[in-house]
């Protein structure tokens, strides 16, 4: 009981420091929340400006997806760029683990561009022919070994097992 009271007082202290925290925790407990859903497609100029402000973008930067039934409402079209992997490692991000600043708009396909996923690659270290040569060398080497050792099996030095059958005589080594 005392542990429960202690954790309750901890929650009280935390919510006194940051009142938004409690709302945030409660909102995150739900698997889906209407607050995360983008609004309807902006039609008037006023709506556009309101939507741009909502996503912390300048009105001239704000560009929603086309409203053709496959769009994302008023969610802005921001590309994945070169992928999170190519963002600067040493910039002091607000969320360094995902290399994102506070309220920085993220792409609809953000899950595709996260650091363990797709990124527009740098120039490869070696030329394409070198990679091809390495591939052919390893595969060819393996295949050559395989075909060369095809008839050179490891086996135990024993004769075939003897099974009794009609017309077959087997002998021991005793007299």
């Amino acid at each position: 009981m005392s542990a429960l009271m202690k954790s309750l007082s901890l929650v009280k202290k935390l919510s006194a420091v940051n009142p938004a925290l409690q709302a945030h925790i409660v909102r995150n407990l739900a698997g889906w929340n209407k607050d995360y859903k983008p609004g309807p497609y902006p039609k008037t100029e006023k709506e556009r400006e309101a939507a741009a402000k909502k996503y912390y973008l300048l009105p001239e930067e704000y560009k929603p997806y086309a409203d053709d039934g496959l769009g994302y409402g008023d969610y802005p079209k921001v590309g994945g760029g070169l992928g999170v992997e190519h963002k600067d490692n040493y910039y002091p991000y607000d969320y360094p683990e995902i290399k994102r600043n506070f309220n920085e708009p993220i792409s609809v396909d953000h899950d595709l561009y996260s650091e363990d996923r797709y990124s527009q690659p740098d120039y490869p270290r070696y030329s394409k022919s070198y990679y091809m040569l390495c591939f052919a060398g390893v595969m060819g080497g393996c295949l050559a070994l395989y075909y060369w050792l095809e008839d050179k099996k490891m086996y135990r030095p024993v004769a075939a097992k003897q099974y009794p059958a009609d017309g077959v005589k087997h002998y021991t080594f005793e007299r």
């Binding site: 004769a159 003897q162 009794p164 005589k169 087997h170 002998y171 021991t172 007299r175």
Partner: peptide, 24 residues
């Protein structure tokens, strides 16, 4: 060098005066 699971190709009595037969 005989291969794996070789079936003896020589006469089983070669070099033996008598040899005990295996009984099933």
């Amino acid at each position: 060098t005989p291969g794996p699971d070789v079936v003896p190709s020589f006469d089983p009595m070669l070099g033996f005066a008598s040899r005990k037969e295996r009984v099933m």
